[in-house]
Design a protein around this nucleic acid. Structure first.
Lengths: 357, 357
DNA sequence: TTGAAAGCGCTAACAC
DNA sequence: GTGTTAGCGCTTTCAA
């Protein structure tokens, strides 16, 4: 990794000034053909690779966008040097790859590349603290963060410097750009199906409380009210603690009061619920129905396959990039919020056939 | 996106020099406690976000690693502003998400974050040309590229500046670092199973020719020779052209000479073969067996599930990062090549039960 | 059309 | 322990 050639080297070899070299690369038409040719020739001969750092410093722009993913699965600390083992298998099924985040990331990647941006990925965990976000923020022209992964104070500070879009949480006053989904109508359609078509009457909402799932619960409540049905308090689990949810379901079973349907705030919970029921010998959907939200891949593979509400994950990612690109074009623009539609995916776990996948 | 505060602003507010500000951040212990506090306080108050460009320029290191993915699926040009549609669904099943590349990328991400590197993702397509690689190469301290995605000349030039590791192709003289897998013993075990256990005698190798699949074919041939069996010429498809493979299979069917087993150079081809057979009314594995290589997720979902050879994808990614980290530590080190083991995954398509997933 | 020169924001010697 | 001072490699006026 010897120090590579710079504009100076190229300039010298081509017999021109560094300004000309720079111009030859960035605005080819403003340079005489013969000059440009000799510059490019020199660059090629020398193996010239422009330094993005220098370029970024000079222009005040890096040409890259950032995506910050919190390490929601505590994977970072592990794995020292155990070369022999494929870690991905060890935590194979708990990983449920690809998870929601991965599909959104995919959308971000595609749209970035399409628009000629490089994508900077940053990861954080409890240890790294806000250091990690700040670090990546300093590297890019715009940043995308998942909701609830970093303190509001931090994202606000960063947004004073570069545009920031937060993904998928009901709107706040944060002053950030935002991409959300239509939780209300999603749950609305689902409840319509469960109440209208399946004639279910007794429901139980299983959730892990946060702003997003709260919106879903609200819609759930609204739907029940509209049909004059009872609204039970939600069963609340904890992030990453399947056992808690599992325990709540077990308690419910012990009490002998099974609902007609478990409406879960997301697919992960729904799968836990289904597993718990299965372990208890309860048959889904025959004895009780279960539904999710998100449409992660694992839900399609589950037996029975999971009836759920699909988030347009790739589109969420693409939209975030578009917002940043626009904000970069017109820096004076106000924070925008884009709400994306969701779609009811009827599969087996609600009692329907296997249609629709 | 107003111009953010710089070291100068922080220094002024804290009443110290810029050198002290810098030191307070990079080597906290070398600064008096009270000084450090006032610096950090000033930074916080101002909303200071260090510029990675400036830092990178000054240090000669960016603290980021790069991963370059070629746009193997021609996805870039599409999708103008059709906000209403979720593109990911449109090409849903042809995408077969997550594909091999995604899982490797996952490993790269995890290992990068664990080691405190940011990850720069770059994408290229026919249009962008080598421009895209060069661009990302200029942004990082080390680069990971998938085999056969960029011209050898380009990767060589880049490797003169920063360490480059190429993923998963039989070794070449390229002078690059390299992570490969043990194609030979993988195919060896597979053939042992097919010949020894299933007693198959007539095989057909389906491939898309490249250095990697060539190694697999060689192992295939070796195994047949070892058992004194005939070695038929491979059926050769084209990248991205399922129809071609499909056509070859159809021709074979028309000729009425079905083998006992189709050994495919990768899972994607295997799935195409299975689909074609299914369409022709041939039952797998009852009438003919099919095997793949890679173990992509889609193979697990297929009916019958695909017997294949699993690459340790996440480990491939992690290993690449380790190599770069080491190379960065000791710049004078020679190119290293690490060969990772693979594992036979016996599922249904070879005629076995559904065990092992 | 090309060159000279002034930074961009930060780090790293080296003084103090 | 802290300040001074050079750059790092590139872009960008502004002259020539």
């Amino acid at each position: 990794m010897v120090k590579g050639p710079t504009v100076y080297d190229v300039a010298k070899r081509a017999g021109v000034s560094i300004a000309t070299v720079s111009t030859a690369f960035t605005q080819p038409h403003r340079v005489r053909d013969s000059t440009r040719d000799s510059v490019l020739e020199a660059a090629r001969a020398l193996g010239y690779v422009p330094s993005a750092s220098a370029r970024g410093l000079a222009k005040g722009r890096t040409g890259a966008l950032g995506l910050f993913s919190f390490d929601y699965l505590n994977l970072l600390p592990e794995a020292e040097e155990n070369d022999d083992e494929d870690v991905s298998e060890a935590n194979g099924d708990c990983r449920m790859f690809p998870i929601w985040v991965d599909e959104v990331q995919r959308g971000v990647e595609l749209e970035c590349f399409r628009r000629g941006y490089a994508l900077m990925l940053g990861g954080g965990n409890k240890a790294s603290g806000e250091r990690a976000v700040t670090d990546i923020a300093g590297r890019v022209d715009g940043l995308i963060v998942f909701a609830r992964t970093i303190p509001a104070e931090v994202s606000r500070r960063i947004s004073a410097r570069i545009p920031v879009v937060e993904l998928s949480d009901p709107s706040g006053d944060s002053g950030l750009h935002r991409v959300t989904i239509d939780n209300a109508s999603g749950i609305g359609h689902l409840m319509e199906h469960l109440i209208g078509f399946h004639k279910f009457r007794k429901f139980m909402f299983v959730t892990i409380p946060n702003a997003e799932t709260q919106a879903r619960y609200n819609a759930f409540r609204t739907a029940l009210h509209a049909h004059g049905l009872d609204v039970p308090p939600p069963l609340e689990g904890h992030p990453g603690a399947n056992a808690v949810t599992s325990g709540l379901i077990a308690d419910l079973l012990a009490s002998g009061s099974l609902p007609d349907c478990f409406v879960c705030a997301n697919d992960q919970e729904a799968l836990v619920v289904m597993d718990t029921l299965k372990a208890a010998g309860i048959r889904v959907p025959h004895q009780v129905a279960v539904t999710g939200f998100d449409d992660i891949a694992a839900g399609r593979l589950a037996r029975p396959s999971l009836t759920t509400i699909r988030q347009p994950m790739e589109m969420i990612g693409r939209t975030a990039v578009r917002i940043l690109a626009d904000a970069l074009t017109d820096p004076r623009s106000a924070p925008v919020e884009r709400q994306l539609p969701v779609r009811l995916i009827v599969r087996e776990s609600c009692g329907c056939g296997a249609e629709g996948n």
